[in-house]
Structures are given as structure tokens and as C-alpha cells.
């Protein structure tokens, strides 16, 4: 079948069965039919020549029902604030989520490709990948980004989900080489990750309720914002609070800003001081 120069097959179908069939993978399909759409390394040294947007701290905490994910809302560009409301926590599919720290452009692109990849597999095969399979898939995407990472466009995601086969929450972190490390209980990455992680470490316990884990995630992000310039704290004037999502047996659920604002207000004011309830 003829492939148009720009790779788009808007009016002809790509039937399976050809010599280099991409199988159930959307990334392989792109690689074969539209390689220009794949995220790739830019030429030259990016760090030297241009500024680009950075997204920072994200945290994932395992709780009794599954996993809680949260991320601050700040994106920086050098010493400037590029965006106050950026989102860093995304659903990957019905039962998993991905959050990102690092160069915002390639990270968003990676998340979009990962989401399509999981959905594509599920539709072609008729059933979703296992949680382990999804984590491995993300690992390959991170590894493919290594050339860009060497030029300063590193992306380090956190991946968490509810393992339907084993009925509990699991979370994975990655390094720029695609290394995949399963964390037992919690993890935080990004420039404020160390501070957030320490905060979680001090208070984490087995079988936390989802509410307690959300509070812990919010506190850890506020603590990180206190220490790290690139992490955004709660913005009471503009009413900007972290993105929060839970992933349980019922699936991925993102909390709306109002719900997070209420919890955050309690934490900031302290219940004793008569904060609004």
C-alpha cells in the first residue's frame, strides 16, 4: 500500500498482515507510517541555545484502597514562572495514572503517546495490558527519549495503578535511561522530590485511608514548595491547588479544584484554628 509522503493515511486503511506489521503497538505503527510524529531528539544542544519549560514535583502514595497521585501546578522556564496552572497528573487508562517531572514539552508528548498506546492495545487485543505490561511499555518510551535527555530534555515519570489481578495499588518510578523501579509504598520526583519524599517518609503507614493519603500528599507538596523554588505552593489568592487523583478498584478519579481547595484550606489553617470546614 502506498504511503503518502507526509505519512497520513486519511483515506486508505492500513490492513494488518504486511511484512513489518506493527502488531498491537501504536508506537510501532507511528514508527512505520508516520515517523515524524514520534517524539524525538532535537538537533544541537538545547540547554545552551534556548530556554524551555520545566515541570516539577509529583508524588504517589500507596494507600489501603489503591494509590493517590498528586502534583504541584508550577512550571518554570529558567528563573521565571512559565505557568501557574500546569497539570502534571494524567489518567493513563481506566485503572492507572501517570505524572511527570522534567521538560514539559516532551513530557506532555510522552503522556499523550502512552495514553494512545494503552488504549490502542486494549482495542486491538480486546483486553487491557496488565499493570506490569503498562509499566514496561512506559519504560520503553522513556528510554526512547534518552537522546533528548542527554541534551537536557529529561522526562522522569511516575506511574501508578491499581493491579486488578492482585487487588492492590502499585507504583513505579523511572530514570532517564528507561530504568523501571517498583516502589513499595511511595515516591516523589522532580526538583522538590527529595523534600516531598522525606515528608511522606515520616508519616507514611500501612493501610492509610485514601483521605489520609491525600492529606499527606498535599502536605508533602506544600513542604516541597517551602524549600524548592521551582515547586508551586498553595496559591490562596488565585485559588490554585495541586492536582490530585486516586486510583482504586473503581478506577482513576481526578479531584476537582474545589474539593482539593477545601482539603488544602483545612491543612493550611489547621483544624484547631477554626479553619472553614
Amino acid at each position: 500500500m502506498n504511503v503518502p509522503v507526509d505519512g497520513r493515511r486519511s483515506d486508505s486503511l492500513c490492513m494488518p498482515g504486511a511484512g513489518d506489521d506493527p502488531g498491537s503497538s501504536f508506537t510501532e505503527l507511528l514508527r512505520r507510517d508516520a515517523p515524524h510524529e514520534l517524539p524525538g531528539a532535537p538537533g544541537g544542544d538545547v540547554q545552551q541555545s534556548a530556554s524551555f519549560v520545566h515541570a516539577t514535583t509529583v508524588v504517589a502514595i500507596r494507600c489501603a484502597d489503591g494509590v493517590v497521585m498528586a502534583g504541584d501546578r508550577r512550571a518554570t522556564e529558567g528563573f521565571s514562572i512559565a505557568n501557574r496552572r500546569i497539570e502534571k497528573v494524567f489518567p493513563a487508562d481506566a485503572h492507572s495514572g501517570v505524572s511527570i517531572a522534567g521538560a514539559a514539552g516532551p513530557a506532555m508528548e510522552m503522556v499523550r503517546l502512552f495514553q494512545t498506546e494503552l488504549e490502542h492495545y486494549e482495542k486491538v487485543e480486546g483486553e487491557p495490558l496488565t499493570l506490569e505490561g503498562k509499566a514496561n511499555r512506559l519504560s520503553q518510551l522513556v528510554r526512547a527519549n534518552l537522546p533528548a535527555a542527554m541534551q537536557g530534555l529529561a522526562v522522569v515519570p511516575l506511574f501508578a495503578g491499581y493491579d486488578l489481578d492482585h487487588a492492590h495499588g502499585r507504583l513505579f518510578r523511572f530514570d532517564v535511561t528507561g530504568g523501571r523501579y517498583e516502589e513499595a509504598d511511595y515516591h516523589a520526583t522532580g526538583s522538590g522530590g527529595v523534600h516531598a519524599r522525606n515528608w511522606v517518609k515520616a508519616a507514611w503507614a500501612e493501610d492509610l485511608s485514601a483521605e489520609a493519603a491525600i492529606d499527606l500528599a498535599l502536605r508533602s507538596l506544600f513542604a516541597a514548595a517551602d524549600e524548592d523554588a521551582a515547586t508551586g505552593g498553595p496559591d490562596l489568592v488565585r485559588k490554585i491547588f495541586p492536582n490530585v487523583a486516586t486510583i482504586t478498584a473503581d478506577g482513576y478519579r481526578a479531584f476537582d479544584d474545589d474539593a482539593v481547595a477545601q482539603r488544602a484550606a483545612l491543612l493550611i489553617g489547621g483544624r484547631e484554628e477554626g479553619a472553614p470546614t
Binding site: 497520513r8 493515511r9 486519511s10 486503511l13 492500513c14 490492513m15 494488518p16 498482515g17 501504536f26 505503527l29 507511528l30 507510517d33 508516520a34 510524529e37 499523550r112 503517546l113 494512545t116 488504549e119 490502542h120 482495542k123 486491538v124
Partner: peptide
């Protein structure tokens, strides 16, 4: 089944691009 897979490819490709 082949037509279904081709359809999913067409749709996902378009949605991604």
C-alpha cells in the same frame, strides 16, 4: 477482524495527529 484492526489504526492515528 483485520478490518476492525485497520479501523482502530485509522482512528487512533487520526486522533493522535
Amino acid at each position: 477482524q483485520m478490518l476492525k484492526i485497520a479501523g482502530v489504526r485509522h482512528a487512533d492515528m487520526k486522533g493522535f495527529s
